[in-house]
Amino acid sequence: METVATRLCGRRCNPLSAAIPKDASIPDVRQPAQILTHCYTSIQYRFDSEVIRIGGSGFLRKIAIMEQRITIHIVGGNSRSRAEQSRLILALGHHAEVYSDLIELIDRPPRSGVIIASDDVLERGISTLLDDLADAGIWTPLVAAKPHPEVEEVVKAIQAGALDFLELPLSEAEVQRMVAHVHSDGGRHAEARRRLIDARRRISSLSPREREVLDWLTEGCSNKAIARNLEISPRTVEIHRANMMDKLGANHAADAVRLRLDARMKRANDEENLPEEFDAPRAGASTKR
């Protein structure tokens, strides 16, 4: 049976005592504004091994805030800009962590919430910044921020992997919109980043030749085709492929290809530093025998 506390907190509970009007409606936690309009008499429930007392709208307000509260990591810009951002974030009921630069962020890597990066941290581009974070094992969603961003900048940032793009100075509406975005897409975004980092870690253990075999395998080539392109024997390809599968922890070729795609890495023989979608392996390009 669903109880009031189950509806409020989404956890199993056993009512120890309750005094609530029979005709009182039960608010939905997905509608915080509705929760704040309700006021119950004292209700005591046992959550797992913890006994708590719900005493009127004050506790309900805390539930609503806790449902939405996130940690926002602020990096880049001058101290005044970071202070202004943190004050606004704290005033809206969220937790703010401030870092002077990327080095400090990497030294104290965040494991939850969202990162807001601005100014000097964005100078080398979103893709490079995300690569730096990935190399440091940080998969927390990234939000870029700058004064008066151009539409083209925003589009490129999102395409590169940023979760969102904010305009500085931050406004209450911008922060609330970002928080809603984090709640709706942040988990999925962070999981994709985690898979990317894990895939890159595994692929980095491969030898140059094993990387080449993986690149050609991702193109759908058979062992014989890979042998022709790399100018080695099919038997040698089989040996490299077996070693590659073992290092990646892949049971099937599809698992290895999926890791390669998750990693979003350029190919081992990419000499022109072209975008990945344009730098297909070239026959005879390999110099390793």
Results as ranks from 00 to 15, higher is better:
102 L>K: 06
103 I>A: 15
104 E>T: 11
106 I>F: 11
109 P>F: 08
109 P>S: 13
110 P>S: 12
110 P>L: 13
111 R>M: 12
111 R>E: 11
111 R>Y: 09
112 S>C: 06
113 G>A: 01
114 V>A: 12
114 V>E: 03
115 I>R: 03
115 I>T: 05
116 I>L: 13
118 S>C: 12
120 D>Q: 11
122 L>Y: 07
123 E>G: 04
123 E>I: 08
123 E>V: 13
123 E>D: 12
124 R>L: 15
124 R>K: 12
125 G>D: 01
125 G>Q: 02
125 G>C: 00
126 I>G: 01
126 I>H: 03
127 S>I: 10
127 S>N: 12
127 S>V: 08
127 S>H: 09
129 L>Y: 07
130 L>I: 12
130 L>G: 04
133 L>P: 00
133 L>W: 03
135 D>K: 14
139 W>V: 06
139 W>H: 15
139 W>Y: 13
139 W>S: 15
140 T>R: 03
140 T>C: 14
141 P>V: 04
141 P>W: 02
141 P>E: 05
143 V>N: 15
146 K>A: 08
148 H>V: 09
148 H>E: 13
149 P>H: 09
149 P>Y: 05
149 P>W: 07
149 P>E: 05
150 E>D: 13
151 V>P: 00
152 E>C: 02
153 E>S: 04
153 E>K: 00
154 V>G: 04
154 V>C: 13
155 V>F: 12
155 V>R: 14
157 A>M: 01
157 A>E: 02
157 A>W: 02
157 A>S: 15
